[in-house]
């Protein structure tokens, strides 16, 4: 996606139009293009609902690793599929057909997802990729996380959160407008580290495996340590420290830990984490 394409979108428009970019702008086999259109038109319930509060929580699960896309979402209506997969193609009769898509269905084992799709609770976006895929295991993951073919810059979700907080608050990208800035919950990564996809410029993700760990245990040894500890970690970046140094980075992180603890007392982080 180039910068010219950056015009204001609603979430619904974004979902629709991003499919256009994904399928039409890139070199992908035509049946993938068609299935992208056919399958993934979002139902009204999946995008913004007018009049309904947008303060919902978006949960993104990333399953890292390999997936045989063509035997997961099977283009059974296309002869080419059976030609190139003569031995491992899934028989038409076994494919779980999608009522809203022509010639595309799911692997027979995906009955749960199939039910959800038929109830309008599942949407599938196909054909997301770029020409001449980079085959380095690591570069290709970075490209995936940044949605940039150069694999540089912020993560795709990080950009989204940045625009939520520093754009107009409607999920539109563009120049940050301080007048419209609003506090947003930091994105939370359940895991040891936040993935690159979540790394933004303005809002830094919080990551943890268990919210129980969000507390310094040193104060249990001696209550008199609590105040000096707070003073120590709440210094922020002190004047004698180069703001680009690792010391400054650690001081900022410590300050964030301290403020997270204060602004999310008693289980707020637990709730978010769950």
């Amino acid at each position: 996606m180039s910068n010219e394409n950056r015009s204001p979108f609603t979430r619904r428009e974004f979902l629709n139009s991003s499919l256009t970019f994904a399928s039409a702008a890139l070199t992908v086999p035509s049946f993938l293009q068609r299935s992208a259109f056919a399958v993934a038109q979002p139902e009204p319930g999946l995008a913004s609902i007018p009049g309904v509060d947008e303060g919902r929580i978006l949960v993104v699960l990333q399953l890292s690793g390999g997936n045989d896309g063509l035997n997961t979402v099977v283009p059974f209506g296309f002869d080419q599929y059976y030609r190139v997969r003569s031995g491992i193609g899934i028989n038409q009769a076994q494919v779980l057909r999608l009522s809203k898509a022509d010639g595309v269905g799911l692997h027979p084992a995906l009955t749960g997802l199939h039910d959800m799709h038929e109830e309008g609770l599942l949407s599938i976006i196909q054909g997301v990729g770029y020409p001449n895929p980079n085959r380095s295991h690591f570069k290709s993951m970075d490209i995936w996380h940044t949605a940039e073919s150069t694999a540089t810059g912020d993560g795709w979700l990080g950009k989204y959160v940045d625009s939520q907080c520093c754009g107009s608050g409607k999920g539109e990208s563009g120049t940050p407008d301080p007048a419209l800035q609003k506090p947003v919950e930091p994105p939370i990564a359940i895991g040891r580290t936040a993935p690159l996809a979540l790394q933004g410029r303005s809002v830094v993700p919080v990551s943890f495996e268990s919210a129980d760990l969000f507390r310094w245990t040193g104060q249990d040894a001696d209550k008199a340590l609590a105040d000096p500890y707070n003073a120590l970690v709440e210094r922020g970046v002190t004047g004698d420290v180069d703001s680009a140094s690792n010391t400054a980075f650690l001081m900022r992180t410590a300050l964030r830990c301290a403020s997270l603890q204060r602004s999310h007392p008693e289980g707020r982080l637990h709730t978010l984490a769950r």
């Binding site: 040891r192 993700p205 919080v206 990551s207 943890f208 495996e209 969000f214 310094w216 992180t253």
Partner: peptide
Amino acid sequence: TWINTSTMF
């Protein structure tokens, strides 16, 4: 990359 709010604690 070693450091985030979780690993710090």
